[in-house]
Amino acid sequence: MTEPNGESRVLATDAAIDLIREIRRDHPGILFHQSGGCCDGSSPMCYPAGDYIVGENDVKLGEIDGVPVYISASQYEVWKHTQLIIDVVPGRGGMFSLDNGREKRFLTRSRLFGGGEGCAVAAPASTGG
């Protein structure tokens, strides 16, 4: 999904792409779901695609390196004016996230879309699971 000015809703740093590719060697089909839980939404969870059921209220933000990125509709409402940037930092991933145990974890950073264009964008359709 892109904004009217052509910016993607979700991007990844080179470090995140490297970790995605490392994880895909063990789990070829993966997806991200942007957490809205204990970490104030800063931890994108990485799951095997077959182990996570995308809900009808989940919104697909886009793809990074061919991996789909979803967010719940309620989280989307909070973050709809921002571009999410998936990055990597030292540490442990979420308990059920595939980055756990690799001594580095995914982290979501964000930046506001410039010029208020996020305000003019209608909410995307949910995925329908």
Rank of each mutant, 00 (worst) to 15 (best):
S72Y: 05
G94I: 12
N5H: 03
N5W: 00
G93I: 01
S110E: 10
A15W: 11
G62L: 07
A49C: 06
R109G: 10
G116D: 05
S72P: 06
R24V: 02
R109Y: 10
P28T: 13
V59D: 00
I17K: 13
V59I: 13
A122N: 09
G91F: 10
G50R: 04
V59T: 01
G37W: 01
G128F: 00
N100G: 05
E103N: 15
S74W: 14
C46R: 03
A122H: 06
V89F: 13
R109H: 14
H27A: 12
C38M: 12
L107P: 08
E117I: 07
V10D: 01
S8G: 13
M1H: 10
G116S: 07
A49I: 13
D99E: 10
P124V: 06
R105C: 10
I64T: 12
C38E: 12
R105N: 02
D51C: 11
D58K: 03
Q83N: 04
E3C: 02
N5R: 07
I64S: 05
P28A: 07
T82P: 01
V10L: 00
G129Y: 01
M1W: 03
S110Y: 08
A122R: 11
R109E: 03
I20T: 07
I86T: 06
A120G: 14
R109S: 10
A12V: 08
A12W: 03
I85H: 07
A49R: 14
Y52S: 03
G91V: 04
G91A: 12
S72C: 08
A15D: 15
S8V: 08
